[in-house]
Design a protein around this nucleic acid. Structure first.
Lengths: 206, 206
DNA sequence: ACTTGACTATAATTAAATTCTAAAATATGA
DNA sequence: TCATATTTTAGAATTTAATTATAGTCAAGT
């Protein structure tokens, strides 16, 4: 009865919520103004938090950005792996990857903008290890899937770097255009064309 | 016939060698440590110049990086356009683009690292207009070339964004791996595979 | 030799990230 | 319920690095 009435936990939020607020505010600022142009003060203002709070939850501005990047890329990559493992034939697998990539971009435009518009990679210094491990694991999984189908004679025996380049390169370039507002073609049509092209480049059957 | 005594076009002609030294020093620092981690002091030390000198030649750290980016991308893009216009048939044109892209990366590894490793785009705020104009002109030229061959029935009638994605996406993804040290395949072989794939995706003949 | 203006060097200034200190909230346990 | 420990928050103080201001050098033209 002393001071409990003062804070009915709507004004003062508990920690995990506050962390979430900071992340979402930072994501919004970063996609809107870019990483270097947003100050900690900007993020604080949008999140309704103080600098101390921000620095309690994240070691630095760079690590905050990296946390956002990692959360996004983790969701994207696990989805990609799921999409892949759900398919039996190599053709279906390739189609699933291309389609999932583009659907993810369409469904998560703000995250995609952050991940694919080349607006990261400056603060990666802080997190290179996390990042590299995550990406390496993803590439390894996809490459492993390719390997089994290569051995079965269903996929062309190309080295891993070319497989990745031919499969994901077009997706990423289209995504970059899409999140920058330079893509005229809608996502579904793009997915169809690029999946067909990927299969033509990588597949071995009719 | 006696006109202006002063230098006609330039407002103030910067000492070219010192400017060059600053650019090369900055390029080395940026590719080595990344843009945000290199301080003006780092660049000064490597160039043997003073901060005043740097700021005399470039308005800001961002503009210095942008100048480097623009110089590199200009060289790359003019070379691409030349490679394209030197070829008559659409097939040769596509092969020439892919090969030139990869040869440029191989010949200019430091510039390529700066341009293709996603380590730019943070300082672009300063220069977006220059950058956008340059890229738009490049894309327009390439797309125009495609258009004539599409009308001749030699290239598939795909929208510009997909043409670019299918042609340059794989090149850029391979380049990214190459400059990061993650490409196992050598450039020549990659060029052959990716040119063939691009032609398979875009061409209409046998 | 002197003036001019581009160029350079060093010393302020400023802006923004990070750290520090302590208060407030929340959880824990008798 | 209360006391205490831990987590979270706030805002001021500090630090770091970019930028600007000031002053000086050098080369060419008069």
């Amino acid at each position: 009865m002393i001071l409990a009435m003062k804070t009915p936990n709507a004004t003062h939020t508990a920690s995990p919520q506050r962390q979430r607020e900071i992340i979402m505010a930072a994501l919004a600022c970063f996609t809107e103004k870019g990483f270097p142009a947003t100050s900690i003060a900007d993020i604080c203002k949008k999140a309704g938090a103080s600098t101390g709070s921000v620095y309690h939850h994240f070691k630095s501005k760079g690590r905050l950005a990296a946390a956002i990047y990692l959360e996004g890329i983790r969701d994207y990559q696990t989805g990609m792996i799921d999409a892949l493992s759900g398919q039996a034939s190599p053709r279906e697998g390739i189609f699933a990857l291309v389609h999932y990539h583009l659907m993810w971009v369409k469904k998560n435009p703000e995250w995609a903008r952050f991940l694919f518009q080349k607006r990261h990679a400056e603060y990666m210094d802080d997190t290179e290890d996390d990042m590299k491990q995550l990406n390496a694991a993803f590439i390894r999984t996809v490459a492993g899937w390719f390997q089994t189908h290569i051995q079965a004679g269903k996929i062309r025996p190309l080295p891993r770097d070319l497989l990745i380049a031919l499969l994901l390169g077009p997706c990423q370039e289209y995504s970059r255009q899409y999140v920058s507002g330079h893509a005229a073609t809608d996502v579904e049509e793009a997915a169809g064309v690029m999946a067909a092209a990927a299969w033509a480049a990588l597949g071995m059957d009719v």
